[in-house]
């Protein structure tokens, strides 16, 4: 890849997977830029945005509830509205749900357990900026680590999302009580995505699994596509 597409990794107080995400994106050919939450804008020529995992604002009130009103989030909203790929991982997923950029909400895990292990995740759609390097029905092994990762939507919303194909990833095993075993969703257009599993922690088979690299490499491709087409902000 001749151009290293710029991917902004937003850092909130309490983010703790930002450096792992940046390292993984860098290893996959991106130029990952940490961006502090108080910044009013994204770096020039940003091709994609990642909201990393962690415990922003100590998970006060509800996970992601405080972070969603951070200064940088207005810029992230604008970037998303212009079709820019935005990925929320774990706490980043919770923030995108609280911000109303993704449907549903993440609740406390059914068994009150902090789930921290590799899980099997099935790709339901292989035509999103996160899954283009995968095949439909492919099973990926990616770790989760969360106490509040049980995705919830009421029956009406769930049916709507299922019909519109917004349920991008599902657990292929019982994980935490998520409705429909949903592990990741996207917005109506498909450029905003969130998932509870951590692809940045599944980058090398030597450390358990390299499947996360398929997802993040798809995102790097999408960012690269935006740079080449001149549609970066």
């Amino acid at each position: 890849m001749s151009v290293r597409p710029k991917i902004a990794v937003i850092v909130f107080p309490g983010s703790n997977d930002d450096r792992d995400a940046a390292w993984a994106l860098g290893a996959l050919g991106a130029d990952a830029k940490p961006v502090w939450h108080a910044e009013p804008t994204l770096p020039r020529d940003t091709g994609a945005v990642v909201l990393p995992g962690g415990f922003s604002y100590g998970d006060y009130l509800r996970c992601g509830a405080i972070a969603r009103s951070a200064s940088i989030m207005s810029a992230v909203r604008r970037f998303a509205a212009h079709g820019g790929p935005v990925l929320g991982i774990c706490n980043g997923f919770q923030i995108l749900c609280e911000a109303g950029l993704l449907p549903g909400v993440l609740r406390r895990n059914r068994d009150l357990e902090f789930v921290c292990r590799d899980v099997a995740v099935r790709v339901e759609r292989a035509d999103t900026p996160l899954t283009r390097r995968c095949e439909t029905d492919q099973i990926l092994t990616i770790p989760v680590k969360n106490g509040e990762g049980s995705w919830y939507a009421d029956e009406e919303l769930y049916t709507e999302l299922e019909q519109s194909g917004q349920l991008v990833l599902r657990y292929a095993e019982d994980c935490n009580g998520s409705v429909g075993d949903v592990a990741g969703v996207c917005d109506e257009v498909g450029n905003v995505l969130g998932l509870m599993p951590h692809p940045e922690h599944a980058m090398d088979p030597l450390l358990g699994s390299g499947d996360g690299a398929l997802l993040l490499a798809s995102l790097v491709d999408a960012a690269h596509g935006r740079v080449l087409s001149g549609t970066t902000r």
Partner: peptide
């Protein structure tokens, strides 16, 4: 806007 999440 902040204190409650109407979904749950």
């Amino acid at each position: 806007q902040l204190l409650a999440n109407p979904l749950i």
